[in-house]
Amino acid sequence: MAQIFAVPCTGQTDAALAVLRDRMVADGLRVAGVLQDRAPSASGGKAHMVLHDAAGRFTSVISQDLGAGAGGCRLDPGALEDVVLRVAQALPGADVLFVNRFGKQEEQGRGFAPLIAEALDAGLTVIVAVAPEKRGAFQGFAGDLAHWADPADIAIAPA
């Protein structure tokens, strides 16, 4: 049964999602999607956003290094779309889709939004981190399928 778990973003969200992914894999579930962490910038600017394939096949940097004093959005939309395509190829046969964030791209119907819809249509469980400022947009996107949960409380049975 399709369901989507929204995990509120905190300083520990990325680590908690990695623990959840490990638990699900140990339980025999097949995972797809990406988890996020940060890597230092060579220029001394903000840390890079790094996405790791939930199944361990690839790692990709999705941010641009704009320099130490730069502001504004550092997301590289092309890099994000490349990651989405790679995850889409791994989606068939998966039980769970992990999405690192429901962000501006998803709010606008891009990024992982189409893949989340595809996963839900296929009956998969989707787990996505949502920042407080994106909660309304996410709720509008997911509707009644959205369940807010702490990663430690999410449990699904293998098919």
Rank of each mutant, 00 (worst) to 15 (best):
M1F: 06
V7F: 00
C9H: 14
T10C: 01
Q12L: 11
Q12M: 11
Q12P: 04
D14T: 10
D14P: 07
A16D: 14
A16L: 06
L17H: 06
V19F: 00
L20D: 05
R21T: 01
R21A: 14
D22N: 13
D22I: 06
R23I: 08
R23D: 13
M24R: 10
V25H: 01
A26K: 11
A26D: 12
G28I: 05
G28R: 12
L29W: 05
R30E: 12
A32P: 09
A32T: 10
G33Y: 09
V34H: 07
L35R: 15
L35S: 11
L35T: 13
L35C: 14
Q36F: 04
D37P: 03
R38Y: 12
R38G: 03
R38A: 13
A39Q: 15
A39N: 05
P40D: 13
P40I: 10
S41E: 01
S43D: 10
S43T: 15
K46S: 02
H48D: 14
H48L: 13
M49G: 06
V50P: 07
V50T: 07
A54V: 09
A55C: 12
A55P: 03
R57A: 15
R57Q: 12
R57W: 07
T59L: 04
S60M: 03
S60W: 03
S60I: 06
I62E: 01
I62M: 04
S63P: 09
S63M: 10
L66N: 12
A70K: 08
A70L: 08
G71P: 06
G71L: 06
C73S: 14
L75W: 02
D76T: 06
P77R: 11
G78S: 03
L80S: 08
V83M: 01
V84C: 11
R86K: 13
V87G: 00
V87A: 00
A88E: 15
Q89C: 09
L91E: 00
P92G: 06
P92C: 01
A94Q: 10
V96G: 00
L97Q: 10
V99R: 00
N100V: 01
N100Q: 04
R101N: 15
R101G: 02
K104N: 01
Q105L: 15
E106M: 10
E106F: 10
E107D: 08
Q108E: 15
G109P: 02
G109S: 03
R110P: 00
R110W: 03
G111V: 02
P114T: 03
P114C: 04
P114G: 00
P114H: 04
L115H: 05
I116S: 04
A117W: 07
A117F: 03
A119F: 08
L120V: 11
G123Q: 12
G123E: 07
G123H: 09
L124W: 02
V128Y: 09
A129S: 11
A129T: 10
A129R: 04
A131Y: 10
A131P: 05
P132V: 12
R135K: 15
G136E: 15
G136D: 14
A137M: 09
F138P: 07
F138V: 01
F141I: 05
F141H: 06
A142Y: 08
G143V: 12
W148K: 05
A149M: 11
D150R: 09
P151E: 02
P151W: 03
D153W: 05
P158Q: 07
A159I: 13
A159R: 15
A159F: 14
